[in-house]
């Protein structure tokens, strides 16, 4: 009342528009979506950790249940990481020499498909050995977490392939390519964590 309030300063000169610096919509949207995804996997992992620590007699895996193929999956993990590296290289070359870049992306897709199919083979073998969803939380968590990851991997591969085909047809989709890449990197990075917690 006695001291007059500061009036809103005149802003007839607009602040420099940061439009150019904005992340593209699809990239920003994907990052936010990934946050939700990270929380999803974090919940699965923490549930798994708790089940593991409170297992009867501290025996994990429970007696009588088949062991997971640790070595074969280690190789498979390498394949997935390689795919991430290939995609990263593809992105680097995409702006300068798109032809080379596309070749790397193709390599990333192929190694991604290799990873998923090797996982599938492993599942079939484990099911035959008698590791099922219902026998114990050991099997249930294994299929839940690895299955959730496989589902993400399949979706990511489909998206990546689609973008790849469109790019081969000559469309320029930098934002969409970036968003798909982010999703694939997420799939790649979350896997070693799963491997360490579930397999070892």
């Amino acid at each position: 009342m006695n001291s007059p309030a500061t009036l809103p300063e005149s802003r007839l000169t607009l602040p420099a528009q940061a439009g150019a610096k904005h992340l593209p919509n699809s990239v920003l949207g994907m990052i936010i979506f990934i946050i939700a995804e990270i929380m999803f996997f974090a919940a699965l992992m923490s549930a798994h950790t708790i089940a593991r620590s409170s297992a009867l007699g501290g025996l994990w895996p429970p007696p009588g249940q088949p062991r997971l193929p640790v070595e074969r999956t280690a190789i498979n993990t390498g394949v997935l990481l390689l795919s991430g590296v290939l995609l990263w290289l593809g992105n680097r070359y995409m702006s300068t020499t798109p032809k080379v870049g596309r070749r790397y992306v193709a390599g990333a897709i192929v190694s991604g498909i290799t990873f998923v199919s090797m996982q599938g083979v492993e599942w079939v073998a484990l099911l035959r050995e008698g590791l099922t969803q219902t026998a114990s939380t050991y099997g249930a968590f294994f299929y839940l977490i690895v299955g959730a990851h496989a589902l993400h991997a399949v979706v990511a591969i489909v998206a990546l392939t689609w973008v790849y085909v469109l790019m081969c047809l000559g469309r320029r989709l930098p934002a969409m390519f970036a968003a798909t890449q982010i999703f694939w990197y997420f799939v790649v990075i979350v896997w070693p964590v799963i491997y360490l917690r579930v397999y070892l």
Partner: peptide, 10 residues
């Protein structure tokens, strides 16, 4: 109406 921003100390 009084113009008050809410940043006045008093």
């Amino acid at each position: 109406t009084q113009y008050v921003t809410g940043e006045e100390k008093h």
